[in-house]
Computed example of a mutant assay.
Amino acid sequence: MSWTVWTYVVYLLVTVPLTVWVARTLSRNGKVFLEDVFAGNDRLAEAVNTLLVVGFYLLNLGFVSLFLRVDSTVVDVAGVFEQLSVKVGVVALVLGVLHFFNVYVFSAIRRRSRTEARRGAPMPPQAQVAAYGPVPPYAAPYPAPGR
């Protein structure tokens, strides 16, 4: 086998397990976060978690596959390490960016749901009138001056 083929093999042996490990870690630890985001709706959190993992695998493994090709011929062990450092580094950066994007989106959803939960429904006018009693027709809207 040529050094270029060895580069491909080592690249796949590093990036595919890295992708699987990151996906499992995000899924396991993200489940608790998603349950909080979706206000305890465990079925919805589990479904979204599964969809995120599938999308993560598709996106990242597709990127790993597209990024597999080496533009120049690798002629020695040093070339293998040079190519791998660039390729694995870019894959790790893409994994990190995808992770932070997901965290940002779900944090925004969480903030929005908490803001809506704190904001109660407005009280209907009838409830306010009932609480304070009817306003007599002879009452002036403002106190008289000098009183």
Rank of each mutant, 00 (worst) to 15 (best):
Arg24Ala: 09
Ser2Glu: 12
Ser2Trp: 00
Asn49Met: 04
Lys31Ser: 11
Pro143Lys: 12
Phe67Asp: 14
Leu12Val: 05
Leu58His: 02
Arg112Met: 11
Ala144Phe: 13
Ala121Ser: 15
Ala39Phe: 10
Asp42Asn: 09
Leu95Ser: 14
Asp76Arg: 10
Val129Gly: 02
Pro136Cys: 02
Ala117Phe: 09
Val74Phe: 11
Val103Gly: 00
Thr7Val: 00
Thr25Cys: 10
Ala108Phe: 08
Tyr8Lys: 05
Pro145Phe: 10
Leu93Tyr: 04
Val129Trp: 05
Phe81Ala: 13
Pro122His: 07
Tyr132Phe: 15
Val80Leu: 01
Val22Pro: 00
Ala131Thr: 12
Asn29Trp: 11
Lys31Thr: 06
Val90Gln: 09
Val88Ala: 03
Val64Lys: 01
Val135Trp: 09
Ser107His: 10
Arg69Trp: 14
Val103Ala: 15
Val74Gly: 07
Leu26Pro: 00
Phe81Gly: 08
Leu93Gln: 13
Ser72Gln: 14
Pro137Ile: 01
Leu26Tyr: 08
Ser65Leu: 15
Pro136Met: 01
Asn49Ser: 14
Tyr142Asp: 11
Leu95Gln: 15
Gly133Cys: 05
Pro125Gln: 05
Ala47Phe: 06
Trp3His: 13
Val129Leu: 13
Glu35Met: 12
Phe100Arg: 13
Leu95Cys: 11
Tyr57Ala: 07
Val20Pro: 02
Tyr8Cys: 01
Val94Cys: 03
Pro17Gln: 10
Pro136Ile: 03
Val105Asn: 05
Met1Val: 07
Val14Tyr: 04
Tyr138Gly: 00
Val20Cys: 03
Pro134Gly: 06
Pro143Tyr: 09
Leu18Phe: 12
Leu66Asp: 04
Gly120His: 10
Gly133Asp: 04
Ala127Tyr: 11
Arg114Met: 08
Met123Cys: 05
Lys31Tyr: 05
Thr73His: 06
Asp36Glu: 12
Trp21Met: 11
Thr50Lys: 08
Gln83Gly: 00
Ala39Arg: 09
Tyr138Ala: 05
Phe101Gly: 07
Met123Leu: 15
Pro145Ser: 12
Val53Tyr: 01
Ala39Lys: 02
Leu61Thr: 10
Pro17Phe: 13
Gln83Ile: 00
Val22Glu: 07
Arg69Cys: 01
Leu66Gln: 12
Ala144Tyr: 10
Asn41Cys: 03
Arg28Ala: 06
Pro125Trp: 06
Arg147Ser: 07
